[in-house]
Design a protein around this nucleic acid. Structure first.
Lengths: 219, 219
DNA sequence: ATCCGGCGCACTGTCGACAGTCGTCAACCA
DNA sequence: TGGTTGACGACTGTCGACAGTGCGCCGGAT
């Protein structure tokens, strides 16, 4: 029997799979902001016990996708316009650091190449969800190329909230996540122009905040 | 009966209290990095069920204080020197944003005053743990004064790891958290000098990273 | 008509028990 | 002697059940 004939088994726990399922359910819009997420109901839907979904929900709570309401009841979170602005400013600070570290790194050339490749995936004609994924993937890649693992973690902890903000405030016609919005970042990195790169990221984030902050109701 | 004669009851859940207990046990050095945190043992010590400590442990895991080892067993986390450097660079980026926002805020004067007051609490002769608390409180206050709630949250998610880094790499003789290390930050803010303030924070963080990265063993 | 107490409902909080899995170690076989 | 196998102990993963707690409804007293 060939050693290739068997693929590795899925060793993920039910908690992990529940977490994935819940997260994508929320981020796909299956549950709207403000919706109550009852442990019993979810456990029934997913076919797992309450304790298991409970742990997944607590995880999502720390991610900021759900918040605790009255008597510990959890509901899908939404962001106020103010929070959206704040969020994107924090993100700008983190990605600004990423840019500076990429430019200070000896692997600058390779990084620029990788980014340019990722740029190609930002097609303007894909469906909205795919566009958002590609956009976030590009920015995550930027962080990863910095080689700063703590930065990557910090950015990822913001990702859930960013998706919420985008999901709720998006005006899908606008070319917010178009390729030519990101190209200047890559170009500045290729030129090695730190100040320009940081400033481009900053403007990119400011514009995004403005764009996504429009439609949001408070909780 | 006077309305003051009764204090509000403690409505915190066992999970929250377990979380507090575990966190402070780790941050006080009661458990050393690498120590195994068995659910059964902890549940016995705290007098609660396994499920309850389990949730607290998962929370600490997301905070970065504990990591999952073999077979999901949790152990107290430690940071490599590289991670310490990365951590403080991220922190510098966040606090740099805080400084910029404080300076751009209309409440700049009041903020500077509050910071100066907090400066007084940074006594050089207190015991180490209290010094660390005061130091972190000062920096947290800086973030809070920016009025950016997302920034505060992001910073707080780093706090656990920072305490780990400080706890394990601290050379308590060095005047790392002394008052005159922080005074320049407040002064720059009072002067309204953005660039100087940001640069001071940056240098402060770089020095701290250098200082705390010395003693750390890998996991 | 209004206020009050009781009652049931729908939740979450907490617990104890069972099952599965891995590391260890000793016995066993070529 | 070296490698393999089986039992054992110590964990975590998962579950179902019980208990406590607000909330809304309803009937009765004023």
């Amino acid at each position: 029997m060939s050693i290739e004939s068997l693929s590795a088994l899925d060793r993920s726990t039910l908690r992990e799979r529940s977490l994935e399922a819940l997260r994508s359910a929320i981020l796909s819009g299956r549950y709207r902001p403000g919706d109550h997420l009852g442990e019993v109901e979810l456990a029934g839907s997913l076919g797992v016990s309450r304790g298991t979904v409970r742990e997944a929900l607590r995880h999502l709570q720390q991610e900021g996708l759900v918040t605790a309401g009255n008597r510990g009841m959890l509901r899908v979170n939404s962001l106020t316009p103010t929070e959206v602005h704040e969020l994107f400013r924090v993100r700008a600070a983190l990605e600004g650091l990423a840019v500076r570290e990429v430019l200070a790194s000896p692997r600058r050339e390779a990084a620029a190449g990788t980014l340019r490749t990722a740029l190609e995936r930002l097609s303007d004609d894909a469906e909205p969800a795919a566009r958002m994924d590609a956009d976030l993937a590009f920015h995550l890649l930027l962080c990863q190329l910095s080689g700063n693992s703590m930065l990557v973690e910090a950015w990822q902890r913001l990702e859930g909230r960013m998706r919420v903000a985008i999901l709720n405030g998006a005006n899908w016609q606008a070319p917010m996540m178009a390729r030519d919005r990101h190209a200047p970042i890559v170009e500045a990195i290729e030129r090695g122009d730190v100040d320009a790169a940081v400033q481009v990221v900053d403007e990119h984030m400011t514009a995004a905040a403005e764009h996504f902050a429009e439609a949001s109701e408070s909780a």
